[in-house]
Write a protein that binds this DNA or RNA. Structure first.
Lengths: 361, 361
DNA sequence: ATTAGCACTCGAAAGGAAAGAGTGCCAACA
DNA sequence: TGTTGGCACTCTTTCCTTTCGAGTGCTAAT
């Protein structure tokens, strides 16, 4: 579907203006911007056509125009001018990110918080870990009743647990178990941890006190937990900044959905390539609760063939280009930190490739 | 200040009714409850006196009465009938708590989430760790570029970090460092980790690659982080359920304060004894943002002479007794899990001792 | 000391008029 | 054929007025 250059300019102006003011925008307001060199009457005609084409709509007969999801889609795909953050801003973001570099889980939730701060929208971060295995298994003997299990996972995170037993355990037994687990339980996924495997380990270790099953239970817990995607939501309260969520019921519904860790991506849909940005506008979302909100998602590379996503949620009237740019920087930073070998030079970040629905239903 | 039995009953009735309906309560409504055997006119007289005593107030001349903070204080201190949860409810709470028993940090945030669910108010949890030391130091050699630092702290939490170096390191060196740190860095607090100590460890280990300082940095980070109080906030969005926060600006302000980890307790004020409940009503709070909200706080014993608190925030019109009871169960459960040796029998929980301001300014 | 009765007050809800923003359309114009 | 000014029309928003009712305070009777 091709529309004239001028219509595109007008559509872009409507979106820009509406994003800024949250009020339906009228023909006069557009004419006064001075970009189009024509009168408000001309623009009125064009607006009427944009409405009948489905890009805009009128809340009521004598109001200004508001973009439809299809209008936003067009804007995101073609019209939006990629907002370039200034060098200082980019560096500021990177600096703030650098201050947080602990363990994976922490990093992710910190970055989600950062994303929310930067964009002033609620942000969420998901890790989708696939097929995690244990790379290494250690048991540290502390005293007769206490030992620490330390597990290194294939995604290079480390999990541990302090175990205190009501009975005394021989240091030798712990050492035997440590090496048995290290050979028997590494490189396998959760479903390979069978009762049979546990039994045979127990027998091999000559364990009569049931220590083996405690350790095996931890292995299972770790593998299960690591394989499950985890979600972090930050800054739900920023939703209340948006005029479209001044209705507490509406805000509450969406916030509840978000902090419940609701699904964002359409079920079957895969994450993008790292570095790409996905935009889901209003009804393009599957979740009922998101039907009149938009979601911008950046994918990062978490190494080990794993990807995660970081995104923000806001009204359809969202500053897509600013948000996309900021998320892109954050995702690039995460990829750099978590991802595989090659570390792109600081300050660089991935190209802004925007992907999403086509907008035609 | 003594007031008649009947006034107390009437005050209690006003609070109960107002908590339930969030509407100013009139004389007729109280008369119809049937507890006081007198007419609405009599109650009107009493109400007028309660107003002039400062326990109640009128939003405007011809409205019903609403409790003042002083009224709530009287209610909490003397009138409120300790709500006894049914056995099933208590057991349900304990069961749900039992499902979460991982590491300290997780437990706390899970319990905070649980508190929010149970009470339908935003909940927060604070740990105040004091003088944490390292109890044991282990370094696990993984390969020439990689090792894992595992640290057991005096509060029985375990912290770990995976270190990847750009240079190869000798396994012998790692072993030397492991035992040096285990003897030199245990039992000391953060400020005892001096550059001198690090230097001498480095020399003793014959470390020319700077590995020592990496490990020392982790030790410092762990000690700092463990000594810093951490706060978790859950369910901010539940605030929007309360009619007094239907104004999005009000809600936003408070939610922002909460998720910013704002202080709750008056600066100098100590936590209660474990098992006690503290109630801060409206202006009794120090933070400006909390001046017309109430906070209920339960203290738990985190073992090792450390206490933490778990609390909820809501409008002054809060169901104090139900909230206090639920928090009490949660705090007791936490004490049982985290606290020192003796484990009180399941299902039991600490007495409900309520403490707080006296309400006289 | 308690109660019934009644006039009074004040806010919330409902109705209605006026204002204003923006449109749609027509006729004139380049 | 595309553009423009003009103007009547529509529909919301805002403000004002009115009405309604809950609840009070006071007084007089018990």
């Amino acid at each position: 579907m091709n529309i004239s250059e001028r219509k595109k300019k007008i559509l872009a102006a409507v979106v820009d203006e509406y994003v800024r003011t949250a009020e339906p925008v009228g023909s006069k307001a557009i004419a006064e911007r001075g970009e189009l060199h024509c009168s408000s009457a001309t623009i009125r005609n064009e607006l009427a056509e944009l409405v009948s084409l489905g890009y805009l709509e009128q809340p009521h007969t004598s109001a200004g125009r508001v973009p439809t999801p299809m209008g936003y889609r067009m804007y995101v795909n073609e019209l939006m001018q990629k907002q370039k953050l200034s060098l200082e801003e980019t560096e500021d973001i990177n600096r703030r990110m650098n201050q947080k570099l602990r363990e994976l889980d922490d990093t992710i939730s910190d970055v989600s918080r950062l994303a929310s701060q930067l964009t002033d929208y609620p942000a969420l971060a998901l890790t989708t870990r696939t097929a995690v295995t244990i790379k290494r298994f250690d048991i540290i003997y502390v005293d007769a009743n206490t030992f620490i299990i330390v597990v290194l996972l294939s995604d290079n995170t480390v999990k541990n647990k302090l175990v205190r037993l009501p009975v005394s355990v021989d240091q030798k037994l712990v050492q035997r178990l440590s090496s048995l687990f290290n050979s028997g339980f590494t490189g396998i996924t959760e479903d390979a941890v069978t009762p049979l495997l546990i039994k045979s380990t127990e027998r091999a270790a000559d364990d009569t006190m049931g220590v083996t099953s405690v350790i095996a239970a931890f292995a299972i817990e770790v593998l299960t937990q690591a394989a499950a995607p985890s979600a972090y939501v930050s800054g739900e309260n920023r939703l209340l900044n948006q005029p479209e969520f001044r209705d507490p019921d509406k805000a509450h519904k969406l916030m509840g959905y978000l902090s419940g860790g609701g699904y964002i991506l359409p079920p079957g849909e895969n994450l993008n390539e790292a570095g790409e940005i996905k935009v889901l506008i209003g009804p393009e979302n599957v979740a009922e609760e998101l039907k009149d909100s938009s979601v911008v998602i950046a994918t990062y590379d978490a190494g080990d063939n794993t990807r995660g996503m970081i995104g923000v949620v806001g009204p359809t009237r969202m500053d897509y280009s600013a948000v996309a740019e900021k998320l892109s920087i954050l995702a690039a930073g995460l990829s750099r930190r978590l991802g595989g070998g090659e570390a792109p030079p600081e300050g660089m970040h991935n190209k802004l490739i925007i992907k999403g629905d086509t907008g035609h239903e």
